[in-house]
Write a protein that binds this DNA or RNA. Structure first.
Lengths: 218, 218
DNA sequence: CAATCATTCAACGTAATTATTGAATGATAC
DNA sequence: GTATCATTCAATAATTACGTTGAATGATTG
């Protein structure tokens, strides 16, 4: 298969890896796997794919270097192969945000309008955490919280938020986060909680970026 | 076209940009454009595509945010849209180098065997340039040299190298470079010159990375 | 203003990608 | 050792991507 021209061979392999990123649902799977490893069935359910179809996508990303997998009992758990995969998706996001008109519009029109106040930077949050001045709220589903979260964060999945308001202190500042820059859970949590009088802001990006920055996790 | 779900819309656009990277010849075009802007015809000739086919690839990369273009006389010159595009291709290379077995093999087997000695880092070269202790040799084609090069570098395209050996001083150290980490021109130049008794090493990566690092250019 | 020329478009056949379906693995668990 | 279950494979049909050909565009140049 490998041509006599080594550069052609390399670029053909690079192209295969890039192609593996070239599908919206696969990018959603990568966002989920950035939270932690997951089974085929769990990914299929959360992304809205049939199990066979999800398995196809996963094996393709496995072949091209994006994912690794291991067996745990009867399930097979997939995970991001390497921190460099997270850097690659981040670089892709940056290019599109800067250079694709529709992306800029959606981000301005949808994500920014929902967060008039400045998001909290990772650095600021990690300082305030040390001082114990802030409540951190993780609004991802329980299993993602269980796979790792910001220290001392409390987990209230967005769907349960209105039912569990009493668990959130009203007198302290709250910082909510979820999966990453394009995850809407934290945006919606901020909107809901502000409507009920809470003092709440959103963390920039999400848990994978927190972890990738080398900050402590539980 | 944009769905009611903003995240799906975003990820669909991200996927289109990723797909634009998913073709070996397009990656070669991006490597050439990292040297500087070029016309459709020049790119087609150098990559070995028909003009119509090259135009298709270029327009696709333009649509998806990778390229920009401008008119100059009767030609249209394409260029990388943004430094973030270079970061994206670099991130792609990193993922494949770390996680794709065949890529690791080709790099070890072909690129490393040809350069037993350590390559010169950008920092080291820029220091030695200040001291005037080193001759820098640019072995890319003339037009790429003309679009920008390392300060004081002399340009001898690889094909002319054996004919123009007398232009290279024998008593000083020579550092050769070309387009980037997968460009074989500098490797071959080092091999040829060492065979003739020159004291020559290779610069890490190539001109685009030198420029992207903020180092001076002519 | 007509001719030129680089680039783009349109149409075509071929190949690759995608989602679905149902069967086949193959390791676990009883 | 057999049944179970999550995952993968194989085959299909629909869609999309690819390269070639030849015509069209459209700005420049004389």
């Amino acid at each position: 298969m490998s041509s006599e021209n080594p550069k052609r061979t390399l670029f053909a392999r690079f192209a295969e890896t890039a192609k593996a990123l070239g599908h919206g649902r696969r990018l959603e799977i990568l966002e989920l796997l950035a939270q932690g490893e997951r089974s085929v069935e769990a990914l299929a359910e959360r992304v809205g794919l049939s199990i066979a179809n999800a398995s196809q996508h996963l094996r393709l990303m496995h072949r091209t270097g994006l994912l690794a997998s291991r067996r745990d009992g009867k399930r097979i758990l997939y995970r991001l192969n390497d921190p460099s995969v997270l850097e690659l998706t981040a670089a892709l996001h940056r290019v599109a945000e800067r250079n694709v008109a529709e992306v800029r519009e959606v981000i301005r029109g949808y994500f920014h309008e929902r967060d008039a106040l400045e998001p909290v930077s990772r650095k600021e949050l990690s300082q305030r955490l040390r001082d114990g001045l802030v409540t951190v709220l993780d609004v991802r589903p329980e299993d993602e919280y269980a796979a790792g979260h910001v220290p001392k964060a409390i987990n209230i999945p967005l769907r349960e938020l209105t039912r569990r308001l009493r668990q959130i202190p009203k007198n302290r500042e709250v910082v909510a986060y979820c999966r990453g820059p394009y995850c809407v859970l934290a945006f919606e949590a901020v909107a809901i909680l502000r409507g009920r009088g809470f003092k709440v802001r959103r963390l920039e990006d999400g848990y994978p970026e927190w972890k990738a920055a080398g900050l402590p996790t539980d």
